[in-house]
Design a protein around this nucleic acid. Sequence first.
RNA 1: UCCUCAGUAGCUCAGUCGGUUAGAGCAUCUGACUGUUAAUCAGAGGGUCACUGGUUCGAGCCCAGUCUGAGGAGCCA
Length: 480
Amino acid sequence: MTDLKTIAEILKEAQIGSEMTIRGWVRTKRDSKNVVFININDGSTIHSIQVVADPTQFNEQLLHDINTGAGVAVKGILIASQGSGQAVELTAKEINLYGKADPNEFPLQPKKHSLEFLREIAHLRPRTNTFGAILRVRHALAFAIHKYFNDKGFYYLNTPIITGSDAEGAGEMFRVTTLDAQNPPLTEEGKIDYKQDFFGQETNLTVSGQLEGELGALALGKIYTFGPTFRAENSNTARHLAEFWMIEPEMAFYQLKDNMDLAEDFLKYLIQYAMQNCADELVFLEKRLLDEEKQLANEERAPMALREKLQFIIDNPFKRLTYTEAIDVLLNSKAHKKGKFKFPVEWGIDLQSEHERYLVEKEFKAPVILTNYPKDIKAFYMKQNEDGKTVGAMDVLFPGIGEIIGGSERESDYDKLLQRIEELNINKETIWWYLETRKFGSVPHSGFGLGFERLALFVTGMRNIRDVIPFPRTPKSAKF
RNA sequence: UCCUCAGUAGCUCAGUCGGUUAGAGCAUCUGACUGUUAAUCAGAGGGUCACUGGUUCGAGCCCAGUCUGAGGAGCCA
């Protein structure tokens, strides 16, 4: 088998003096009369290997063509570095140029690029240090999610991506159809006849796997989903995507407090995992953030460096309070008394961003779990509390991110659930199967949804969600 | 979708009160250089000033519309 060791593996275990081949992409080249330095990165680690070549040993044109971006393989001997800045380097014996990168066309230069520019070249941005680091952190978090649930006896359930139901009863959906958009078949009333569509009914891309997730939990006990989710909202913010990944655990016999305990433990585990397994990436991202913040005024800078912030989350309990208590905190706050809030505060409102940020960033300076919201601002499936006014909802709010998790204990009483569905004019024909779970062996159960990219935003310290997913889909943008 | 701001060289940006041939740094190219770290030094090339229309003797600059991007808001994960 070909020796295809990555740079990560070589830096970890290779012996000085041994011969090896590295393969990757040229980051920078520096040359002088007697020596050429080529930094090569293969994406396996943030670190590059410096190749040292004697220009008299190689074809002049070959060395000329090795520019930033070129794909190469270099065979040589690993030696202790003669210069400072790296422990080891590779003295080149053979250089194979797989693919040139014409410097007049290749857009990545050995200099700092704006994130906006890199978004326009999303096909090449993974080759930068920043996006390499982000994508490796993203992978580690995804792996940790599966590991966490597997270790705790959860089963990974694949819920449908094409659905006939609208899980939340709100939110625009992307239609899935094979009908001719120019000339669709019509019913006698002149409406589009979905009976002739591929599935014989109207179908959309999923906005949540929750309803199907509940079916799994009420059979397997504890399940989780981890898949793509689609929202056709015209949302233009640094926190929203039209296509994102969501983790939705759903647990039979869990009540609201069990749900909160799981959410907190889960988030802490994931952050801890990233700290342990992406140490180099986090050092780099922390430095990047500090450099970026040098341009900001002091009060706009983050109070803690990235790793300190992550450690703080791990070390401190999340602040838990009810919606009603949160409203009292807001009403008694200096910000409210001085009229600093743009939106009014009173029991029954849906909390605005400014209110959530006040609670998390000013009042408690820690993640906050809010529970027991008014039923009128939450979804139909949430457990109705005995006060008749609130439901067993829980939102986990993170500094700088806002709502990172939304969840609830589910209503398990058939009559109460049906009544709520009717109150809200939800078409019960399309979710008859969901109602049947409350008809046959209904038990208490709970679950929540974690936005994967919002977690990745928090852990990487990035500010725009479009920079923590390889190929972002947002309104007016589905390139690449 | 709403509010605000922006769009000038490959990239990041400057461009005075509306006035002659639109500038800088980096990148690129050429040359120099005995070990560099986004190497350094010297020189050269590089522009549909987002687009469309308008005002004006004259528009990168003023006005209108459109497009694109960013920040904030709403929706939410």
